[in-house]
């Protein structure tokens, strides 16, 4: 047997099973540049052969905010806690897009890169994690757009804006947790491809993006807050606008949910990863 002690070179031990919760953190460290490389590749490639190019980064949350504004404020006439309805919708949309865009990119990563998964070794976990970076960039651009709109509409950001990275981070964590689970499952069941847009569409209506839950009855609220994203989006918007409704119970539930789902996702990944190359 190769004697580890007598050689400077690292020894790779290849065996049938890895440890129950072996995520290969050493490999992740060695391949840390790959995380950035994948993320920049996806960003570079995403807007190739599009007429509007990078403008889509801005257009996506903007159009979503407009739709939310019309549906919930103009048609359904729901409350926005006295804040300018468009600013309210836009802030909510930014939070929700961070979740939905990251999830939709992350979930497809293994299947979209199946030739890599079956032909090259690298820590697979990098793939579903890498959309985090493009999520941050999209969010940054959205924020640059939101702040002037707020000022024009006379909404002054509160000091709570300092907590914004926390909210954004928790929304991403929730998203990436679901992303790691769904991308791993998608290797075996392509059904997930169809489920994700359906579920995010549903989620878009039940999450208080363009309306506040403050004016709804207690039963309705209780059901709405089962959605972990509801509390997180409210907290996210509150940190931007200051005066909007927040249910702190729902926020706590959202935070715990995000952390738990992320840990669970690592277990799911560790269990399924061994069979990726053979099944994909």
């Amino acid at each position: 047997m190769i004697n580890r002690a007598e050689s400077k070179l690292p020894v790779t031990h290849i065996r049938a099973r890895k440890g129950f919760f072996d995520l290969g953190l050493g490999d992740l460290l060695q391949y840390r540049d790959l995380f950035v490389t994948f993320a920049t590749r996806d960003i570079k490639v995403r807007y190739k052969q599009t007429a509007l190019g990078v403008a889509w980064v801005v257009l996506q949350p903007l159009i979503m905010a407009v739709v939310q504004y019309f549906v919930f404020t103009r048609i359904a006439k729901l409350s926005t806690d006295g804040v300018d309805a468009f600013v309210f919708s836009f802030a909510g949309s930014l939070g929700f897009s961070a979740f939905s865009q990251t999830l939709s990119r992350s979930s497809q990563q293994f299947v979209m890169n199946r030739n890599l998964v079956s032909k090259v070794f690298f820590p697979r976990l990098i793939l579903p994690l890498s959309p985090v970076l493009s999520g941050c960039i999209d969010f940054g651009v959205g924020l640059v757009l939101l702040v002037p709109i707020m000022l024009i509409k006379g909404v002054v950001p509160s000091a709570m804006i300092l907590t914004l990275p926390l909210w954004f981070g928790m929304i991403l964590l929730l998203s990436i947790g679901f992303g790691v689970i769904t991308s791993s499952l998608m290797v075996f069941y392509r059904d997930i491809t169809f489920l994700i847009p359906l579920l995010t569409n549903l989620l878009m209506f039940v999450t208080p993006i363009g309306y506040s839950l403050s004016s709804r009855g207690p039963n309705e609220q209780a059901i709405a807050y089962l959605n972990p994203l509801a509390g997180l989006v409210e907290g996210f918007r509150w940190s931007l606008l200051g005066s909007t409704h927040v249910n702190w119970g729902a926020v706590t539930y959202g935070l715990v949910f995000a952390v738990v789902i992320f840990i669970v996702s690592l277990f799911v990944f560790a269990r399924l990863e061994e069979k990726f190359a053979d099944a994909i």
Binding site: M1, I2, S7, L9, P10, V11, H13, A16, F121
Partner: peptide
Amino acid sequence: ILSRITRPTSGEAFIRGRV
């Protein structure tokens, strides 16, 4: 198996250095 794309069903291997 040696390039760690798939795992063996049984047996083991040691590789010294980067592959």
